[in-house]
């Protein structure tokens, strides 16, 4: 009987711990981070891409999420027509000259967390 109670108590304790850890662990997906992009991060593409598309790990709020493409002088070169669909954000591009470009993103996840980042890609002739 004592053994049974001890086993039950141990099982209960594990359940409590598991539940507690899970409760706080739920925040693990709670920030939208870059999952992958097209052009890929750091990639060299042959021919100018028509757009930059970035996939995130969580759905975004279109209202305060931004995506910009800058040339080597820091000048914005995209068409400033950013669109957000669920966890994907994209912006179209004019015909880019060969060179290295920086993509700057700011993502507001649907659960209100802001993340920011940037990456480069290169357009080869």
């Amino acid at each position: 009987m004592t053994y049974f109670r001890a086993a039950l108590a141990a099982r209960f304790s594990r359940l409590v711990l598991g539940a507690l850890i899970a409760l706080v662990a739920q925040a693990a997906d709670a920030h939208a981070f870059l999952d992958h992009a097209s052009p890929r991060v750091g990639d060299t593409v042959h021919g100018a891409p028509a757009e930059v598309k970035v996939w995130f790990t969580e759905d975004l709020e279109p209202a305060f999420s931004t995506l910009r493409v800058l040339d080597k002088d820091g000048k914005q070169v995209d068409r400033n027509d950013k669109q957000v669909e669920a966890a994907v954000m994209h912006v179209s591009l004019p015909q880019l000259a060969p060179g290295t470009y920086r993509v700057q993103w700011r993502a507001l996840s649907v659960d209100t967390h802001v993340t920011e980042g940037d990456f480069n890609f290169t357009v080869a002739p």
């Binding site: 359940l15 409590v16 507690l20 850890i21 899970a22 409760l23 739920q26």
Partner: peptide, 20 residues
Amino acid sequence: AILLSGVVNVWYMVADVPAL
């Protein structure tokens, strides 16, 4: 109820526990 709801969360998020 707290345990039940916690177990549901374990189902989704248990992979992240070691890093915590």
